[in-house]
Design a protein around this nucleic acid. Structure first.
Lengths: 121, 121
DNA sequence: CAGCATCCGAGAAGATACTG
DNA sequence: CAGTATCTTCTCGGATGCTG
């Protein structure tokens, strides 16, 4: 990125793993196994083909998934999560746990903040 | 965000915790304790006051840090990580571990990818 | 089917200057 | 000091159309 960012040791990981759309894509591949382009497109309802391609290329380059091109007619391409991608499972599991434990706290904090800060109108 | 995103259970957490600049800010507060605005500004070399303010407000609203305003002359404002913010420590620790274990793999994957894909030039 | 090329609009971020 | 206000820049993402 721009900067070492105060040597924050997790900044590089965040760039790699938590870019936009990467977690839903990895999740879909992790949950439903090897899939074709259109299947992924269908599972991610609001993504466009262009962006999906961009993100898949990025994840392929980072080694988090593998892309298999079958030169047939019509062409067939399959995406599958790699071992490196699978190694993120515990991280995602822990995030899911945190979500279950604390997402309500965040919502409450937001309500409280919005309530006190709503002096206008 | 835009969409349930296929009910990916960690998508909401990613939005809250891994927005731009949030991890370096939380890390700085976690590592160096309560700090004033300028101290944070100095630790995050490439951030501008505007963006720092935006991110601090967002994190305050989400309950991940607390903001204490001291009405003095000159004014003094201190930011401190909250209990909710501290509850992310294990997540960050695990990410740091993953970084140590696999960041090299990602770098290698990138080199390999770039090497094979460099047909141009 | 998978994906690239092109254009366009919105929102984020940067630079600068000013205030309580 | 701790911001806010304004303006500009710019990257990302959406929409559309075309190809192997």
């Amino acid at each position: 990125m721009t900067d070492p960012e105060l040597a924050c040791p997790i900044a590089p990981v965040v760039d790699i793993v938590f870019s936009r759309w990467t977690t839903p894509i990895l999740w879909a591949l992790h949950e439903f196994g090897r899939q074709r382009f259109v299947e992924l497109e269908r599972r991610l309802p609001s993504i466009t083909p262009k962006v999906l391609t961009q993100r898949l290329r990025q994840l392929e380059r980072d080694g988090l998934l593998t892309r298999t091109y079958h030169p047939e007619v019509p062409p067939r391409v399959e995406y599958e999560i790699s071992d490196l991608g699978r190694s993120l499972s515990p991280v995602f599991a822990q995030l899911a746990t945190w979500a279950g434990d604390h997402l309500g706290d965040v919502a409450a904090a937001r309500e409280s903040y919005d309530a006190t800060k709503t002096q206008k109108v």
